[in-house]
Amino acid sequence: MFVVFKRELKSYFATPLAAIFIIIFLVMAGIFTFFLGDFFAWGQADLHAFFMFHPWLYLFFIPAIAMRLWADERKTGTIEILLTLPLTVTQVVMGKFLAAWVFTGCALLLTFPMWISVNILGDPDNGVILTSYIGSFLMAGAFVAIGSCISAISKSQVIAFVISATLCFIFVAIGSPLILNFAGDWMPKFALDTISGFSFHNHFDSLTRGVIDLSDGIFFVSMMALFIFINVALVDLKKAA
C-alpha cells in the first residue's frame, strides 16, 4: 500500500500542476474569506469566515484532484500493470486515496498564514481553529473518497470530475435551508432529518463552532469508509465486465 501511496503522491508533484492547484486553492480560499465572507467586517478574531467556505471550495478542488486517480490509469492502460502486481485491490485503493488526501492536507496546511494573521490581529480561540482544521481535513477525506470512487467508473477524467462534483454538491447542499424549505413542504419530518443528517455542511459547521461532537468525526470517517468500500467493489466489478 505504501508503495502505491508513494508513487501517487510523487506523481502529484511530478508536474507543475500540483503547484498550480495549490496556488489556486489558496487564492480562492483568500478571496472567499475576504470578499464573500467579509473577514474584516465580521469584526471578530476567528476564522469562521475562512472555514465557512471550505465545503464549497472542496466541491471543485477535490474532484479535480481525485478525477485522475483511476480514470487516467484506465485510459493509459497502466491499470493492467497496477492490478497484476501482487497487491490486493484494497491496498491499491487505499494507497491512492491516502495520497490524494495527504495532497489536499498539504494544501490545507499551506493556509497557515490565515491562522498567523488572525493571531496577530486579535486573540482568537486557537482550540476552535484546531478543531476546524481537523474537521476540514476529515471532510476533505470524505470528498476525496467520493472523487476516487467516481473516478473508478469512467475512463474520462472530465466525466469523473463532473459526476463527482455533482455528487459532492448534493452532499453539501442537502442540509442547506434552501433545500430543506423546499422539501419541507411535502416530506415527512423524519425523512427530512435523515437527509440533512447526511449533509457535509451541517457536520462541518458544528465542528467549526468548536463543538467537539464525536459523531461529526465519525460521520466523515464512515463516509470515507463507505466510499472506499464502494471504490474497491467498483474496481473488482470492472474486472468481471
Partner: peptide, 22 residues
C-alpha cells in the same frame, strides 16, 4: 489465489503502458 499467482508472473500488457510522468 491472485497474489501468489501474480508473484510468479511477469506481464507486458498490450501497448506496453507505463506511467508517463516517471
Amino acid at each position: 489465489k491472485p497474489i501468489q499467482a501474480r508473484r510468479k508472473m511477469g506481464y507486458l500488457p498490450e501497448g506496453a503502458p507505463a506511467y508517463g510522468d516517471m
